[in-house]
């Protein structure tokens, strides 16, 4: 029997080995390498300077640069607002459609489409909708007499970030709806019946039945959406390129690394971003108790 157990474990290790190898080579090694590179001055275009060890200089440069703090703030702002909107809208719509009606299949298929198409493609769609001259948004608002002249949606600090949020909400709210809908369907009607008997108002039913039972799903959904939103790159890259106070950490990191060829500082930024993600995950998993493993 012992031999059997050894054999079983041996097979198991062999079977998980490929996963561990790819993860090790493609995910863990690069992160460790970033950590290592972040202590050196590495500039591809200045090979004559060598690659001297600079200690914490890269980090010091980041933390004293207002551009970094602005990017951190922009990223946080974007993450909080869009994830909140997605959750509220997603929950409202999920509760609304959580009933049998004709055309549910159609609804499900249509909400999947925004999720399924490449973000860059939907970003281009939105960029065209927001165009200052021939954009349909401005034109419709002028038709309804809400605007008197075209508005530069993507060229003003007030609206550029809202445009990015709108495009993100459009793409991911449907996903939220599906997730929450699946959760709602696991709630047994008995809970509601019991609450009705107690004379609970719809609002109280929502507060005391729906929300607590949905909490685990909401937390998981929030965690993944938050991490996703925190990494946002495509939308900003296409819609504003980071101008108008929309530069996020991902865009900044890519700029420093690839446009300025400053791999040392780019790596330091990557490490900082990685730490932010760790903190977010920690808060969700340990403090709020999101259960991400069975």
């Amino acid at each position: 029997m012992d031999k059997e157990a050894t054999r079983e474990a041996k097979t198991a290790y062999l079977l998980v080995a490929p996963s561990l190898i790819v993860i090790g080579v493609i995910a863990l090694f690069p992160i460790l390498r970033s950590l290592w590179m972040s202590f050196y001055a590495i500039d591809l275009t200045l090979p004559q300077l060598g690659r001297p060890f600079v200690g914490l200089a890269n980090y010091l440069e980041i933390f004293t640069d207002s551009r970094f703090w602005a990017a951190l703030w922009n990223t946080t702002y974007f993450t909080v607002i869009s994830v909140t909107l997605e959750l509220v809208l997603g929950l409202a719509i999920a509760m609304l459609v959580n009933r049998p009606f004709a055309g549910r299949g159609l609804l499900r298929a249509s909400v999947l489409i925004p999720w399924a198409i490449p973000t860059v493609v939907s970003a281009q769609m939105w960029r065209w909708i927001f165009n200052d001259k021939a954009g349909i948004l401005g034109s419709l608002l002028q038709n309804f007499k809400i605007l008197s002249e075209p508005y530069p949606w993507l060229a003003s600090v007030e609206t550029a970030r809202l445009c990015i949020i709108a495009a993100d909400v459009w793409k991911t709210t449907p996903f939220m709806v599906l997730l929450l809908l699946a959760g709602l369907q696991t709630i047994s009607p008995e809970y509601y019946e019991a609450a009705m008997v107690d004379g609970a108002t719809p609002f109280r039913r929502f507060l005391h039945v729906t929300l607590p039972l949905l909490k685990p799903i909401i937390l998981v959904a929030l965690l993944f959406r938050t991490l996703d939103a925190f990494r946002i790159f495509d939308l900003v890259y296409v819609l504003t390129g980071g101008a108008f106070k929309t530069e996020t950490l991902s865009v900044l990191t890519s700029d420093v690394t690839f446009k300025c060829s400053d791999y040392g500082q780019g790596s330091a930024l990557a490490v900082v971003m990685f730490c932010c993600i760790m903190v977010i995950s920690f808060i969700f998993i340990k403090v709020l108790g999101a259960k991400v493993e069975e």
């Binding site: 200052d132 001259k133 075209p150 508005y151 530069p152 949606w153 993507l154 060229a155 504003t240 108008f244």
Partner: peptide, 8 residues
């Protein structure tokens, strides 16, 4: 200028 010139 066009109002959106800062994105042109």
């Amino acid at each position: 200028t066009a109002r959106a010139v800062t994105s042109y």
